[in-house]
Amino acid sequence: MCNCNNMNSCNQEQDLMKQIQQISFLLVDLNLYLDNHPDCRQALEDYNILVEAMDELRKVYTQKYGPIMNFGTAKSDCPWQWVDDQPWPWENKRR
């Protein structure tokens, strides 16, 4: 069960996070493959496409729901906001 009042919004957030997780997995896999096959143009093209998709997904998620990493990828307004985000993005929202 979701902790938010709007199930549609909660489902959208979960779907977006799932997409981020899936692309993250693909990026790690391609990174490992490219370590062993650095001249594979198709893998490198796929990697670069996924990097762009990940950047866009992170931007959308951060704008709608807050940062998903604690440093280096999301700006903060004053006062510092990272510690104020609840629940944390990695916390299970089903309880």
Score class of each variant (00 low, 15 high):
Met1Asn: 06
Met1His: 08
Met1Gly: 10
Asn3Thr: 08
Asn3Pro: 07
Asn3Ser: 10
Asn3Gly: 05
Cys4Pro: 02
Asn5Arg: 00
Asn6Asp: 14
Met7Phe: 08
Met7Tyr: 09
Met7Gly: 00
Ser9Pro: 00
Ser9Ile: 07
Ser9Gln: 09
Cys10Ser: 06
Asn11His: 09
Gln12Asp: 08
Gln12Phe: 05
Glu13Ile: 09
Glu13Trp: 09
Gln14Lys: 04
Asp15His: 07
Asp15Glu: 13
Asp15Pro: 00
Met17Gly: 00
Met17Tyr: 03
Lys18Pro: 00
Lys18Tyr: 09
Gln19Trp: 09
Ile20Arg: 03
Ile20Thr: 10
Gln21Cys: 04
Gln21Ile: 03
Gln21Tyr: 03
Gln21Lys: 07
Gln21Glu: 03
Gln22Thr: 09
Gln22Trp: 03
Ile23His: 00
Ile23Arg: 01
Ser24His: 06
Ser24Asp: 14
Phe25Asp: 02
Phe25Gly: 01
Leu26Pro: 02
Leu27Gln: 05
Val28Gln: 10
Val28Ala: 06
Asp29His: 06
Leu30Ala: 06
Tyr33Asp: 03
Leu34Asn: 04
Asp35Ala: 11
Asp35Ile: 12
His37Leu: 05
Pro38Thr: 07
Pro38Glu: 09
Pro38Tyr: 04
Asp39Ala: 09
Asp39Glu: 14
Gln42Glu: 12
Gln42Ser: 10
Gln42Arg: 14
Gln42Pro: 00
Gln42Met: 13
Ala43Asn: 12
Ala43Leu: 11
Ala43Tyr: 03
Leu44Tyr: 09
Glu45Asn: 05
Glu45Pro: 00
Tyr47Ile: 12
Ile49Tyr: 12
Leu50Lys: 14
Leu50Ala: 02
Leu50Cys: 05
Glu52Lys: 15
Ala53Arg: 08
Ala53Cys: 02
Asp55Asn: 13
Asp55Leu: 00
Glu56His: 13
Glu56Gly: 04
Glu56Tyr: 13
Arg58Phe: 15
Lys59Val: 05
Lys59Glu: 11
Val60Asp: 01
Val60Pro: 00
Val60Arg: 01
Tyr61Glu: 04
Tyr61Ala: 07
Gln63Met: 02
Gln63Thr: 06
Lys64Met: 07
Lys64Arg: 08
Lys64Trp: 04
Tyr65Lys: 00
Tyr65Ala: 03
Pro67Cys: 05
Ile68Asp: 14
Asn70Met: 13
Phe71Gln: 07
Phe71Asn: 01
Thr73Asn: 11
Thr73Ala: 13
Thr73Val: 15
Thr73Lys: 10
Lys75Thr: 12
Lys75Pro: 07
Asp77Gly: 11
Asp77Lys: 12
Cys78Phe: 14
Cys78Gly: 03
Trp80Thr: 05
Trp80Asp: 12
Trp80Ala: 10
Gln81Val: 12
Gln81Glu: 10
Gln81Trp: 11
Trp82Pro: 00
Trp82Gly: 05
Trp82Val: 01
Val83Tyr: 13
Asp85Gly: 10
Gln86Leu: 01
Pro87Gln: 01
Trp88Ala: 02
Pro89Ile: 08
Trp90Tyr: 08
Trp90Cys: 02
Trp90Pro: 00
Trp90Met: 04
Glu91Cys: 04
Asn92Phe: 04
Asn92Tyr: 07
Asn92Cys: 06
Lys93Glu: 08
Lys93Asn: 09
Arg94Asp: 11
Arg94Lys: 08
Arg95Pro: 14
Arg95Gln: 08
